[in-house]
Every structure is written in C-alpha cells, then in structure tokens.
Computed example of a mutant assay.
Amino acid sequence: MISGAVVMWNILPVMQRRMIALLVAAIGLANIAQPYPDLAPLQHGPTVALLLAAPWILRRWPLSNGAVACIWVFLLLHTLGARWIYTYTPYDDWARALTGHDISSLFGTTRNGFDRLVHFAFGGLLTLPIAQVARRYGRLPQRWSLAFAFATIGLGSALYEIFEWLLTIIAAGETADYYNGQQGDVWDAQKDMAAAQVGSGLALIALLRHRG
C-alpha cells in the first residue's frame, strides 16, 4: 500500500507535488500554538483528508497545473482562516502593522469578513478546475462546461452551508456559535452563497474573454 502511494506520488508533475508539500507545511504552521485547539480538527480535518487522497485523485483524474494551483490557493486561504476559526482572523492587525490603517474602517464594516472572502474565492478559484473536469471527463463542450461549473458552485455552496449547520449541531457542541461563524447575521448563509456565485460569475467572464 505504501509503495503504491509512493508510485502515485512520483507520477504527479513536479509542480503539483510541490504545491501539495507546501500545503502540508502550511497546515503544520497553522497548528503551532493553535489558539482554538477544540475546533482545529473540524477546521483542518477535511483539508488533511483531501491531501491524503490527492495523489490518487490526481493520478486517476489528472488536471492541469493551473487548475491544481487554483485549488491550492483556495486551500491556503482556508488554512489561514481555519487557524483563527475565520471569525477572529486578525487581518486588521496585519493591515495596521503594514499601513497604519485597518481594513474594517476603510470599508465601514464591523464583522470579520475573512470568511466572506474565502466563499468568494471558492467560486472564483474553483470554477476553472470544475469546468476542466466537466470538459475532460464529462465530454461537455467548453461553454456547457463553464455553465456546469457555475451551477456546481451554487450547489456546492448550498450543500456546504447545510453540512456546516449539521456539523455545528452534532459535533461542535458548546462551541457551535464560534464554529459556525455567523457573527450574529441571520442571513450569513445566503450572503456566503451569493459571494461564491459572484466569484464564479467573474471567473466565467475572465475565462470566456481569455478563450475568445
């Protein structure tokens, strides 16, 4: 079994192996002096599971380096937010250290918006990989593959919000409010899904313009 995993790993393009290795390192760094150890497994567990399966998945259904890079950037953003369970990602502190100004004051917001950024990135970054899968393995024409990707982003966003709700009820227990990250907004799920669709829509426009 180990030898088979090694073979699959070695078959992957060098760039994809490097991206996987860097993501493993990022997850390790994100869990040093972990500020929310009770919720860390819920936040990072799915990413770790995907990394373990990645050599087999990419061997069975190869993707271009560009498509894998899109997934990689999205997972890096998720890993960063997951360290602070999204709600407490200190981007205002980072901005003040770099520029002397914070992002929340600039946009006039009071909630931590990092989770919304990652939902936007979900749509913007995963549209290309999904379209590529639909085109290569579903044999869809280019425009239909893009339409399929846009619809899949919507479905994926809705299923994730349902999954997050159920996981919060079942697994998060007393820390449910922290894990769910609504920050008091009853429309949080709908806004997250809208952010993903906007990201996907912009990605569609860019891809259509790029391909002429």
Rank of each mutant, 00 (worst) to 15 (best):
L204K: 00
A203W: 00
D188V: 04
I205G: 01
A189N: 11
M193G: 09
D185V: 11
K191R: 13
D192C: 08
N180W: 13
G173P: 08
Q183V: 06
A196K: 09
G181W: 06
Q183G: 12
A195E: 08
L204M: 04
Y178C: 13
A196G: 04
A172H: 01
Q190N: 12
A176T: 07
G173K: 07
V198N: 07
K191C: 11
G181Y: 05
I205W: 01
A189Y: 08
V186R: 14
L202Y: 09
Y178L: 15
Y178N: 15
Y179P: 08
A172M: 06
E174P: 11
A171M: 12
I205R: 00
V198M: 02
A203H: 08
A195T: 03
A203Y: 05
Y178W: 15
N180D: 13
D188G: 01
A196S: 06
V186N: 14
W187A: 15
Q182H: 15
L202T: 05
A203F: 09
A171P: 05
A203M: 02
T175S: 15
A196L: 08
Q197V: 06
E174W: 00
Q197A: 10
Q182C: 14
T175I: 13
D192Q: 06
S200T: 08
A195F: 01
A171I: 05
A172R: 09
E174I: 10
S200N: 03
D185K: 10
D188M: 06
G199Q: 02
M193T: 06
I205V: 09
Y179G: 01
A172L: 05
A195W: 09
A194T: 12
V186Y: 15
Q197H: 01
V186S: 15
A189I: 09
Y179C: 09
A172E: 02
V198D: 04
G199R: 00
A194V: 13
G201D: 04
Q183E: 09
I205L: 04
V198C: 02
W187C: 10
L202N: 06
D177M: 11
W187I: 12
N180Y: 14
E174N: 11
L202E: 00
G184R: 02
L204T: 00
G201N: 02
I205T: 11
